[in-house]
Amino acid sequence: MPSFSHFFETFIDSYPVFFKGMLLTLQVTAVSILIAIFIGLFFAFLKISKIKVLEAIANVYIYIVRGTPLIVQIFIFYFGLSEYNISGFWSATLALAFHNGAYIAEIFRGTIQSIDKGQMEAGRSLGMTNALTMRRIILPQAFRRALPPLGNQFIIGLKDSSLAAFIGMYELFNVATTAGSNNFDSMTYLLIVAVYYLILVFLLTTIVSLMEKKLSASD
């Protein structure tokens, strides 16, 4: 184990390169999660559509995502998309969105279905259409209920973005392993990168719990 003073000095000295890696990690995570939310909503709607074909499509998608390792998915996206001149950044981001989308779809499906059916009836009885009631009444409540598990999924997404290192993305984890082997000091750099991840997860958790608080005004 490195001494604390060595760890601290290295932490300070390596700050510029880790900061760059952190920005890339944040970009990959933020963009992939954002896309994953839309993918998740889309497939959640397919699953609750009560139309067999659409449900089957959603089930196959979720089955594939759950049934294969993320690292395999990332490589398939990377090699598959390289033909179309799509960058490593977008390969990794889309692979992560594809992956997280399946889990987010299940989160949204569960919370939408957990909203009391009286809410839909109340909306319909007032002359609101199915879609309007979904948008104005059901989804806001479902989204609020989804926040805690979504926050969890965001954290998983953030940590999983480290796998983008394996297709050459110079994000946090790659910065740590590269600097570690260049300096023959892997342990120090791995501990440093662990601290970076902990700080990011802490910030993400705080943001999600602030949102929860804001949305729970009606409780």
């Binding site: 009286g118 009836e121 009885s125 007032l126 609101m128 309007l132 104005r136 806001p140 009606s218």
Partner: peptide, 27 residues
């Protein structure tokens, strides 16, 4: 045709006034 339910079915994420205004606003 207005309807009143046994279990009220108010919209919990909206205030009392917003509950009453919702349908006139959006419908």
């Amino acid at each position: 045709i207005g309807m009143v339910f046994q279990h009220f079915n108010l919209f919990p994420h909206k205030t009392v006034l917003q509950n009453v205004m919702e349908a006139p606003l959006v419908v």
